[in-house]
Design a protein around this nucleic acid. Structure first.
Lengths: 373, 373
DNA sequence: CTGTCGTGTCGAAGCGCTTCGACGGACGGA
DNA sequence: TCCGTCCGTCGAAGCGCTTCGACACGACAG
């Protein structure tokens, strides 16, 4: 352990032949320094491999250069989505020269008080905010600059970012109707989820149903919750088909249920992609790892993270940001098991007309394929 | 933003009627303080909600109270496993009163140099270490206390922790043979994985094959790599069955392939769980979300994280830790789609004898069901 | 009764950085 | 020519904490 003694600003200063404060000003740009001096300083910094001591900096400047990210690491929430979120947040934070401290939600309000009081972070991103979330209250009391992912009941004066779940529900209905379906249903999460965070699941449902209503009397739409164990999924789908024999479209907002839904539909003799359409609200992998691959609306976790971090940086810089930011959902359709095609919000595809030509046309039509994600 | 001015150690001191240094000693326990004084100080701390300023503390004590965790957040690696890992690490670190800074692997060696030089962290956990990993070299040069998850080529003088993948391969072979299989195969990851990190996939393979050999001439074992797209999986399984018509057991070390393997086997008329046995190396969800549910060996991410953090804490405290720690794999069998049963390493179940009685017997026999995970 | 030790507490000296006020010199306007 | 400005740089004063040495004070041995 150990290693060479740390390089301090004094070392840099003496090597560059200037005062320590000058080095500081070169590095921060807070006062103008002549180009020649600045260059000498930068050279010294590079030669010595100088990095300012984070603690000293935070003590003197009252800025830690670190933001906290509180994730619900224990249960619930889809893990991969969280990971994408974390990834996006770290990447974006580093772009702003900030580091990210990872906290678990089970540190709760006390954890927030701790990081706030110890000035270990400058701000905070709170994920998976629930409708009645004790952390939100604590946050308000602490006055720590923050951005929430999700919407609590009292969003007054808080900065919140989330996917526009209502629009996601609407997109799904729209997709199914556009594919020629006339009797559609939303298979949701278990009732427990609806109770826990009205926001989220509820918004999908209302968006979905509303679009069905708008469309007029030739379309029937309904929604029903569904537990996510295989047996319940099978049963729920069977009941649904029994009650609505003409059902020809299904939106599934329940990740683990997807494969079982397909099984149940196959058992019932429906041919997905031909006389029946299914669309998923969930991560790409869920929609890709079934046969046939399904169109889906995903939670754009990296995007949300970027926006959240960006907002937080602006708040730290004293810039105003909107209280509420809703991210438009994007529907990815998957044709012939090939590369996915991304639709812009509002863009429509009449799947009855889909054929190889269309696929090519859409690809070359400037609609970007998803690269990273 | 803002909020009340921060409470400092001086505030606590004056309220308790002692010197600041006394408060410090009470909090750190580095000098003996009379019980009465200590109590007064603790009361003042609680009343004022005092938390020491992290920067000041790190500046004065040369300890940050933070460890870094560098994860391969971009691609590859199974995301849920990473998340479990992160969760375990944060939880364990908090137990030691440390915070966790999250870094992405694409910050690379420069990122390590940065955090080391700025004293922003006391130590480091490096995940998903590859055989030839440039970060390892940097780490050695920096002399930053660290623990690696995975084994690089030159592990000399480094602390490494990992699942005993060879034992995992052995367990799988053992399970299949114990289930009555006589011709078994390992379906691995794509060849690219084998090339990238010889450690990991290769160790599973050799453990699997070795167990097959040991068992003697009545058992045949082979291994073959397999890409993870659905079409290749189907093809690979078909080829395998064509070449080895008597094949009756398969270990799958390729998460996305699992559902497709089952499809291919069904297409070929094999009845999994009856005349054919399949075991998975991968996360629980992968083995649970197929029909029938499969036995599996998982990467015990939380466990690894705990061990890694524990080792790091010990190193920071100047205590010796073993260079190499291999965690025993555990095979989880899943009977009748009910709760999973966990086998101790070495424990065996003759699946030919499995029936409802055995299930009950195993449950009550003190073999714990998995709770959290 | 004096000297010696321990125990509990205090004061002061930094840790490495940022930032404020000051200052010397160049420059332009009067 | 002199003075006011502005620019580039410096020195010093903290930021809030830990830690070292010093110092009372009572206990105890000589």
């Amino acid at each position: 352990m150990g290693g060479g003694r740390g390089v301090t600003i004094a070392d840099v200063a003496s090597r560059a032949g200037v005062a320590a404060s000058t080095v500081s000003y070169v590095l921060s740009g807070k006062r103008s320094i002549s180009p020649e001096t600045a260059q000498r300083v930068m050279d010294a910094v590079a030669e010595l491999g100088y990095h300012p001591h984070a603690g000293a900096r935070s003590l003197a400047s009252r800025k830690a250069g670190v933001i906290a990210m509180m994730l619900p690491l224990r249960h619930g929430m889809h893990l991969p989505v969280l990971m994408q979120f974390a990834s996006g947040a770290v990447t974006e934070a580093r772009r702003h020269d900030q580091d990210v401290l990872l906290m678990t939600a089970d540190e709760g309000p006390a954890g927030l008080a701790r990081v706030a009081a110890s000035s270990i972070v400058d701000g905070l991103i709170l994920m998976d905010v629930e409708v009645r979330d004790p952390r939100v209250e604590a946050l308000r009391r602490l006055g720590l600059p923050s951005v929430l992912i999700g919407f609590p009941a009292e969003a007054e004066g808080l900065t919140c970012v989330d996917l526009d779940f209502s629009a996601a529900g609407r997109e799904c209905a729209e997709y199914l109707i556009g594919s020629g379906c006339r009797e559609v249903a939303l298979l949701g999460a278990s009732e427990a989820v609806y109770e826990r965070r009205t926001g989220f699941a509820e918004r999908v449902r209302s968006g979905f149903l509303k679009r069905g209503l708008e469309r007029g009397p030739d379309v029937r739409a309904e929604a029903r919750p569904c537990p996510d164990d295989p047996v319940s999924v099978q049963r729920t789908v069977k009941e649904l088909l029994a009650a609505r024999p003409a059902l020809d479209g299904l939106a599934v907002h329940n990740e683990p249920a997807v494969p079982h839904v397909l099984h149940a539909l196959a058992d019932a003799g429906r041919s997905v992609g031909e006389d029946f359409h299914v669309v998923v609200i969930g991560p790409d992998e869920v929609a890709e790892r079934v046969h046939p691959q399904l169109p889906s609306v995903l939670v754009p976790a990296e995007r949300l993270a970027e926006i959240a971090v960006g907002h937080l940086m602006r708040k730290l810089g004293g810039v105003e940001v909107p209280d509420s930011t809703l991210v438009e959902p994007q529907l990815t359709i998957r044709l012939f098991e090939r590369d996915p095609v991304l639709l812009e919000p509002g863009e429509r595809v009449d799947l009855l007309a889909v054929d190889a030509d269309l696929e090519v046309q859409m690809r070359s039509g400037g609609v970007p394929g998803r690269a990273g994600q």
